[in-house]
Amino acid sequence: MATGSGAAAAAADAEEKESGSRMITLTSNEGKAFVVTEASARQSATIRSMVDDGGCVDKGFPLPNVDSKTLARVIQYCDEHGNKEAHTVDERAALAKFDKDFIAELDADKAFLYDVTMAANYLHIQGLFALTTQCIADTIKGKTPEEIRTAFGIEYDLTAQDEEEIKEEDTHA
């Protein structure tokens, strides 16, 4: 709105709202508000259904299970996939490259990868959830159970008897 007055800008906003390209506010559990396009927010099936149910778009959506750092990263993904077209080969290649870089960065920080996976699960962001779970699966492949526990900080809670049972079952499987 380079030349528009305040009133004109407000009118334009109202018009934009009518046409469906609304802005949606997502609030992290730390109370930080993130304003995203509706197209971006619709990457989340959870938010999509709330918007379609005529939910309180104006009041925004508080996300009590997601912290600011995680939400910012999730929005980065949603913006890329929600706001960009994926019709041509080039466009799709650009998105694939984005995904590759996005997950490579997360892979380096396992705790953060966990947070993003949890958020994608909670928000039902199909593409992101597939991306993070595949990344975790790739990490697991080729590792022994011991190596997996170390890599993911998992506590060993099987009793000797449990372990024996599992090995027993495996030999009969």
């Binding site: 396992k110 705790a111 966990y114 996976t117 949890m118 699960n121 959830f129 597939a130 779970t133 595949q134 975790i136 699966a137 697991i140 492949k141 526990r149 993911f152 900080g153 998992i154 506590e155």
Partner: peptide, 17 residues
Amino acid sequence: GFGELPANALEEILVRI
């Protein structure tokens, strides 16, 4: 941590193996 991933998320990971 990862040991406590909800069952549906862990399932999603494990079916990829």
